[in-house]
C-alpha cells in the first residue's frame, strides 16, 4: 500500500515497525573516563547506530521512492538530530541521566572529563526534561523522528531539474503523511481540541531545540577530531565530513 493511501494509524504502525533494535556498546568501561576514552565510546556507539539508522530510514514508507540524492542529503543533514532524539527517548524516565545505551549510561557530572561537552549534556538533559513534562508517547516520538529526517533538507536546496522537482513533491507529500500521523496520535490522548493544537505546537517547537543541540554537537565533534582527541572513522567520518565541508 502506498503511503498516500494509508490511514494515519497504518502509517504509524509501519514506522513503529521500522524502529531500530536496542543497541549495546559492548565495551569494557574503564572508569574514571578520560577525555579520549569517553569520546571513543560515544563515537563507537554513534557509528553502530548510524548503520541501523540507514536501515530505519529505508523502512519509512515512501523514503526509498525519493531520489537517491535526496535520500543522501536528508540523512547527512539530520543524523545527529536523530541520534539525539533517540537518546532523549531512552533517557526520558531517568532524570539527570543520559542513557546512550543499556550498557553506557552517564550522569551530567561525568561530562566534566571532556572539554566543552557539559554544555551539550545540559542542553540534552533540558530537552529531555521538556519531553518528560509533556509525557511524550511512543507514537508521537516515532512521528517526530520521521519529521526530523524529512524536514532536514527542505530549506537548503531548491529543485532545478524535473527529477529533483518530482522528488521534492514526493517529499512534501510524505511530510503530509507524517504530520497527519502525528495529529492522529495526539487525537488519541483524550484532550480537548485546543489542548491537541497546543500539544502539536509544543512538540514541533522542540525540534528547533534539537537542531540547535545537534549543531553544537557537530562543532564539538569536529573540534575533538581536529585536536586528535578521538579517531573518527567509517560511516561517522563520512557523515561528519559531509557536515563540515
Amino acid at each position: 500500500v502506498h503511503h498516500s493511501a494509508m490511514s494515519p494509524e497504518e502509517f504509524i504502525s509501519r514506522i513503529m515497525e521500522a524502529e531500530p533494535p536496542e543497541i549495546y556498546l559492548m565495551e569494557d568501561m574503564n572508569k574514571p573516563f578520560t577525555e579520549s576514552s569517553m569520546m571513543m565510546s560515544l563515537t563507537n556507539l554513534a557509528d553502530k547506530e548510524l548503520v541501523l539508522m540507514i536501515s530505519w530510514a529505508k523502512k519509512i514508507p515512501g523514503f526509498v521512492e525519493l531520489s537517491l540524492a535526496d535520500q543522501i542529503h536528508l540523512l547527512k543533514c539530520c543524523w545527529l538530530e536523530i541520534l539525539m532524539l533517540g537518546l532523549m527517548w531512552r533517557s526520558v524516565d531517568h532524570p539527570g541521566k543520559l542513557i546512550f545505551s543499556p550498557d553506557f549510561k552517564l550522569n551530567r557530572e561525568e561530562g566534566q572529563c571532556v572539554e566543552g561537552i557539559m554544555e551539550i549534556f545540559d542542553m540534552l538533559l533540558a530537552a529531555t526534561s521538556r519531553f518528560r513534562e509533556l509525557k511524550l508517547q511512543r507514537e508521537e516520538y516515532v512521528c517526530l523522528k520521521a519529521m526530523i529526517l524529512l524536514n532536514s533538507y527542505l530549506c537548503t536546496n531548491s529543485p532545478e531539474t524535473a527529477e529533483e522537482l518530482e522528488s521534492r513533491n514526493k517529499l512534501l507529500r510524505l511530510l503530509d503523511s507524517v504530520i497527519d500521523a502525528l495529529v492522529w496520535a495526539i487525537s488519541k490522548l483524550g484532550l480537548t481540541t485546543q489542548q491537541q493544537t497546543l500539544r502539536l505546537g509544543h512538540l514541533t517547537m522542540l525540534l528547533s531545540h534539537i537542531r540547535h543541540v545537534s549543531n553544537k554537537g557537530m562543532d564539538h565533534l569536529s573540534t575533538m577530531k581536529r585536536k586528535n582527541v578521538v579517531l573518527v572513522y567509517d560511516l561517522l567520518l563520512e557523515m561528519l565530513d559531509a557536515n563540515t565541508t
Partner: peptide
C-alpha cells in the same frame, strides 16, 4: 567529487538490499 564518491558507505547502504545489520 560526485555525491556517490563523497558518500561511498552511505550510498552503498542505501542501495544495498542486504540488511545493514549484517554489514555492521
Amino acid at each position: 567529487t560526485s555525491l556517490k564518491e563523497k558518500h561511498k558507505i552511505l550510498h552503498q547502504l542505501l542501495q544495498n538490499s542486504t540488511s545493514p545489520v549484517d554489514l555492521a
